[in-house]
Amino acid sequence: MSDNFFEKHDLSIGMFVVGIAVIMLILISAGIVCFLMILTLQTLLGKFTSEVFGILLVSSELIMTLSIVIPNILIIRGRPKAVKVNKINIYFQLICYLLFLLTFQNKNDLFLLIFVILPLFANWLMLSTKYQAFLAYHEALRKDPIGFRQSIAKRMFE
C-alpha cells in the first residue's frame, strides 16, 4: 500500500498545507455563519436579550465546531469517508449565507461576498489533487503505519 501511495501521489509539504487550510477555512466560515444565523433569527423573530443572544451564539458555535472537528479528526486518523461530512457542512454554510442574503436584501452584499468566498475556496481545495494526496497519506498511514514510515524513510535517504 505504501508503494501504491508513492506511485499515485507526490509527498510534499503542500498537501499538508492544503489539508490544514481546508480545516481552517471551514472553521472560520462556520464561526461567521453562526453569528449571521443568529442575526437572521433576530431580524425574523424580534430583538433578543443579550443573555439569549449569547446562549444561542455559544450553543450554535459549539455544535458547528463539533461537526467540523470530529470529522477532521477521523480524516487525520485515516478515515477519508468523513470528507462527506465536511462537504455537507460547506453546503449548509452556503445555504445559511443565502438565507442571510435574502433576509437583509441588498444591505450587505459586499460584506457577504467576502465570507462566501471561504466555504467556496475550501470546497475548491477539497477537489484538488493535493487534498486527495492528504487523504491518501493518512489512509496509507492508518493501514500500515510501520511499513509506510519505512518507505518514507527509504525515499528520503535515497
Rank of each mutant, 00 (worst) to 15 (best):
S2E: 13
E7P: 00
E7I: 08
M15F: 09
M15Y: 10
V17Q: 15
V17K: 15
G19W: 01
M24E: 14
L27V: 01
A30M: 05
I32L: 02
T40S: 10
T40Y: 01
T40W: 02
L41R: 06
G46N: 07
T49C: 12
S50G: 03
V52I: 14
G54W: 07
L57H: 09
L62C: 08
L62G: 10
T65S: 15
T65V: 13
L66E: 06
S67R: 07
S67M: 13
V69W: 03
K84I: 06
K84Y: 05
N89S: 14
N89L: 13
N89R: 11
I90G: 01
I90D: 07
L94C: 01
C96Y: 02
Y97V: 03
L99T: 04
T103P: 12
N106Y: 07
N108C: 07
D109F: 01
L110P: 00
L118R: 02
P119T: 01
L120M: 12
F121M: 15
F121K: 15
N123F: 09
N123M: 08
L125I: 01
M126Y: 10
Y137Q: 00
H138I: 12
R142D: 11
D144H: 08
D144N: 14
I146H: 05
Q150S: 03
S151H: 05
K154D: 06
E158W: 05
